[in-house]
Design a protein around this nucleic acid. Structure first.
Lengths: 236, 236
DNA sequence: AAGTGGTCTAGACCACTTG
DNA sequence: AAGTGGTCTAGACCACTTG
């Protein structure tokens, strides 16, 4: 893949931020400085800064300059995103720790959500996602064993369930429920947080053409994660 | 100049789509055609098409052209609902208690969100929403005093700010951020909850044609309120 | 006054899909 | 071969913030 000039500049800036050389609120080079440094026109340097601003990584003020945005993770409600991609897009390092990967007997609640009889089998995984080695999301996932028979053969330290499932059973539909909860104790241990900390919990059900693929419970510390969305209302 | 040139072109295209003159999958004029028609450079016409593409309204293919995107259904999570309607829909009784209605000087965070200088004036309201006389949501709202000069003359025990604003400054756009937080103490008093209870907090910014209308902070006890959404992914 | 970002121009070359 | 979008240039004027 041949990189564009503005892509090279974006990567340069992301590296500075990721390595900590440019911390939060640090001033980043102006359009003119980047243009000179990379030997490109101002419009090209501008595009790199502009796209990082749209991604929420930089903040710009006319007359004042461009600065590294205050970090707060954000994921879109409009899309089912791969958390690894989201973290990369922020210029951070994603890693995952597979805690559990096995077959379980599902209880009533999960059975209803999966659309299978209570007491039947399902695959189950527990994965802890880390951003720059800091726990950020605990993922519990029940997967339809009929639709995805090879689920247990994966290594989710290397690939996220989302990436794997996207490949074998492309998503056609999803539903969400979002709640604020207090983290259960076993979760506090994984996420390395205090017991009284509020967490954002998303229950997500996903469908492929063949039916319900998985039921996922995502729990994130309230101070480390937030969900965002932007909609444009059709004017009448 | 009030409107930018690319803004005028965007509006032109949006009008064609909304009026049905350009239906789904219709071909829209090329960059060159728009440039000639509006007497602007190709880069300016391009920007209008590019921004509408980023908003998901248009779809572009190199060599082929630009087309009106296929409409995809939106999550109900992302609709701006009137809480009074939501409660009525559950067959319950909604009431509201107006706690504060005045003009305030906005701090930095709100100023940025409202798009006005820090230290300028804004209207402000605090309203407690009750469902069957049980507190369910605490609404703090900053309202652009230039766009809605009559805000302070309302009685929000009788009508919700949402209803009033919908009438005087119809919504065109909104963004959301959702977080799990611990309720601040003054909020616990209003919501009649314990201090360590997790709350779902939605920060919402709404736009009308003229600009940012209001910034709203909605806080609900985690055990009393839930957000739900369902999306259908466009199949390829 | 100097620097910054926001908008805009009038060109250019390229990769790609279409008739 | 003609048209389209994707990238890029080297300028310009403006509004705005800062020292």
């Amino acid at each position: 893949m041949v990189l564009t000039k503005f892509g090279i500049i974006k990567q340069f800036i992301l590296n500075k931020i990721e390595s900590g050389i440019w911390p939060q609120n640090a001033k980043v080079p102006s359009e003119n400085e980047l243009a000179e440094q990379f030997n490109v026109s101002r419009m090209t340097a501008r595009r790199a800064l502009q796209e990082l601003t749209e991604q929420g990584i930089l903040v710009r003020t006319q007359g004042a300059g461009t600065f590294v945005a205050t970090f707060k993770s954000q994921s879109s409600l409009l899309e089912i995103n791969n958390i690894a991609d989201e973290i990369s897009a922020r210029g951070h390092h994603h890693s995952a720790k597979q805690l559990i990967l096995n077959a379980v007997t599902v209880d009533d609640e999960i059975a209803i959500l999966l659309g299978c009889p209570s007491g039947s089998q399902s695959f189950y995984s527990e994965i802890l996602h880390l951003e720059n080695d800091i726990p950020i999301q605990f993922e519990q996932r029940y997967v339809n064993d009929k639709l995805v028979p090879t689920y247990l053969a994966q290594n989710f330290n290397e690939i996220t369930p989302h990436e794997f499932l996207s490949a074998v059973a492309p998503l056609t539909e999803a539903s969400h429920e979002i709640e604020a909860v207090l983290a259960p104790v076993e979760l506090c241990r994984h996420l390395a947080i205090e017991t009284h900390q509020p967490c954002l919990q998303v229950k997500r059900r996903t469908w492929a053409k063949q039916g319900v693929v998985s039921v996922t419970i995502l729990t994130s510390p309230g101070n480390k994660h937030r969900l965002g969305g932007h909609i444009v209302v059709s004017t009448n």
